[in-house]
């Protein structure tokens, strides 16, 4: 669309304002990680690096980070498998109730987290509790996977719609087995969609707190729960800022990697 120069400038200004809006609070987090005041008095009256050394020595934070990564990877793996299966079923077959499936997949994330959380919690207690399986890492992964399926499903479905089935039919015509066709034709086609969906699934899981609050067993601390427990303790709150600042910086790595592997599509996957 041919936009007038003022229109372009206006859009550019909006973009700049929007990015400022997004990044000013993050900048504040970064500055506060050096703020000598324990409850972030503003403006900072002295600067210190002691929170950074305290965070470095904080085993609880490191363990929580590992727990979150494990939970995120577990949930993402399940979401990748389930999401892809549903996407294939919906795109390649016509069956009764197909329209309802997209609604069903969406439901866990569309309903408020607190509802999903208490539903899973009470079901877990009454069913799994009787089987002697307490809440812990497994229940966190189950909870997260439930609402992560939708990100993979959406990305894969969109990709399948775009690519059609010609290449797969050609592969079959040339004598490839179903497995070979999947391995050499279908999978490469959907790889970047899987990456995009998986990345979003991981991000959703990684920062989830409400569902986790209800599905985590007492002994398992994910990073958001660790942050929740520590943000409200004055001696620990500045350490939380450090952890958050580190996360922001580290987060560039998976996003950048995904972009490198899959091209610009990946990072921009649909939610």
């Amino acid at each position: 669309m041919t936009l007038s120069a003022p229109a372009r400038w206006a859009l550019r200004a909006v973009m700049a304002l929007g990015l400022t809006f997004i990044y000013v609070p993050l900048l504040l987090v970064l500055i506060n990680s050096f703020n000598g005041d324990r409850t972030f008095a503003w403006p900072p009256h002295d600067l210190t690096t002691r929170w950074w050394s305290a965070a470095w020595a904080n085993e609880g934070a490191r363990e929580a980070l590992l727990t979150s990564i494990r939970a995120g990877l577990g949930a993402t793996a399940i979401a990748l498998v389930l999401g892809t299966m549903i996407a294939f079923a919906v795109q390649r077959f016509a069956f009764f109730g197909r329209d309802t499936i997209s609604l069903l997949v969406l439901l866990p994330i569309a309903l408020p987290g607190i509802v999903t959380g208490i539903a899973l919690d009470s079901a877990w207690r009454s069913v799994m509790g009787d089987l002697g399986i307490g809440k812990g890492m497994f229940s966190i992964i189950v909870g997260h996977a439930t609402f992560c399926v939708v990100t993979v499903y959406n990305n894969v479905l969109a990709r399948l719609r775009r690519t059609g089935t010609n290449l797969e039919e050609a592969s079959a015509d040339l004598g490839a087995s179903g497995f070979q066709t999947f391995r050499y034709v279908t999978f490469p086609l959907i790889r970047s969609a899987l990456l995009a969906g998986g990345l979003l699934a991981f991000a959703l899981s990684f920062d989830e707190i409400i569902v986790t609050t209800f599905t985590a067993g007492p002994g398992v601390t994910t990073l958001p729960i660790w942050i929740f427990n520590n943000l409200f303790r004055p001696n620990q709150a500045p350490v939380v800022n450090v952890v958050a600042a580190v996360l922001i910086v580290l987060s560039v790595i998976p996003v950048w990697l995904a972009q490198r592997i899959a091209g610009p599509q990946a990072g921009a996957g649909r939610t």
Binding site: M15, L19, I22, Y23, V24, P25, L26, L28, V29, N32, F40, W42, A203, F206, D207, I209, L223, P224, I227, F228, L231, A237, V240, N241, V243, A244, L247, I248, L250, S251, V252, V255, W256, Q259, G263, P264, G267, A268
Partner: peptide, 27 residues
């Protein structure tokens, strides 16, 4: 520059929700 902008939009998703909310409390 498009995918850099996408990264710029995605990055804040990784900063903890609670930390961001608290940053706003200070603001």
């Amino acid at each position: 520059s498009r995918h850099w902008l996408v990264i710029a939009i995605l990055t804040p998703l990784w900063a903890s929700y609670l930390v961001k909310a608290y940053a706003w409390r200070i603001l």
